[in-house]
Amino acid sequence: MYAFDIKRPSKLKKARKILKKNEGAQVLGGGQTLIPTLKQRLAAPSALVSLARIDELKGIRQKGDELIIGAASTHEEVAADGTIAALSSLAGGIGDPAVRARGTIGGSLANNDPSACYPAAALGLCATIVTNKRKISADEFFTGLFETALRDGEIIKAVNFPIPEAAAYEKFDQPASRFALVGVFVSQCKGDVRVAVTGASEDGVFRWADAEAALAENFNPAALEGLSVDPAGMIADIHGSPEYRAHLIGVMAKRAVAAAG
């Protein structure tokens, strides 16, 4: 770790100010990605601005047919909520209790790890990412590996999830990290069917259009019979070939539909 300052403001405005003033300052959510990065000396922010004490970023509440989750909500808090069962079970399947007690939904989405779980939920439910500046649809938010539509210094305030009629997330663990080797989130929301896939693609989370079309006709695992994903562009590493990942997408999608139905 390199030396850095730590600031712990209690107002979002203050956090913004600090970020503006300090070039090289960075937002700290739960630190479950950022702190290991710092420990390995892979990043050298001049200061960390912790969001942990900002009340505006906390809390989970239902507003109409939306669930609004403060960006600083921990995985543990989302897991305990239960309003959207698929989302809670996804959060409860992230890492271990220590990670879930610290890691936040805002941090996970901002980081956009290609193997992370939350991006699949955000895309699979067409969530809206609310920042200090604007609202960004999940369809616009994820722009590539570890890349998002967030601008420098932009802070996620909350994530708004439409409450679906049916949804489920199926994750196949990478054996070592237990991040998603492949994770598939399916949902049915106001007649719209979504299938979002994480862990598999070299471009990060994506929607499986063929599956969405088939399931829109018939929301049943059988509808996915015969569909396959092109292995081109899938990740190859010591845990699985592109072919294996492409195959797992089909298996996980079917299981998710079965679990949602």
Partner: peptide, 24 residues
């Protein structure tokens, strides 16, 4: 039998050099 493997690539880099890739 099921999980652990120290894997080198052809350049001699250890691909499973952390618990992210070495499965205990």
């Amino acid at each position: 039998a099921l999980l652990e493997h120290a894997v080198y690539d052809e350049d001699g880099q250890l691909l499973s050099g952390s618990f992210m890739d070495y499965a205990m």
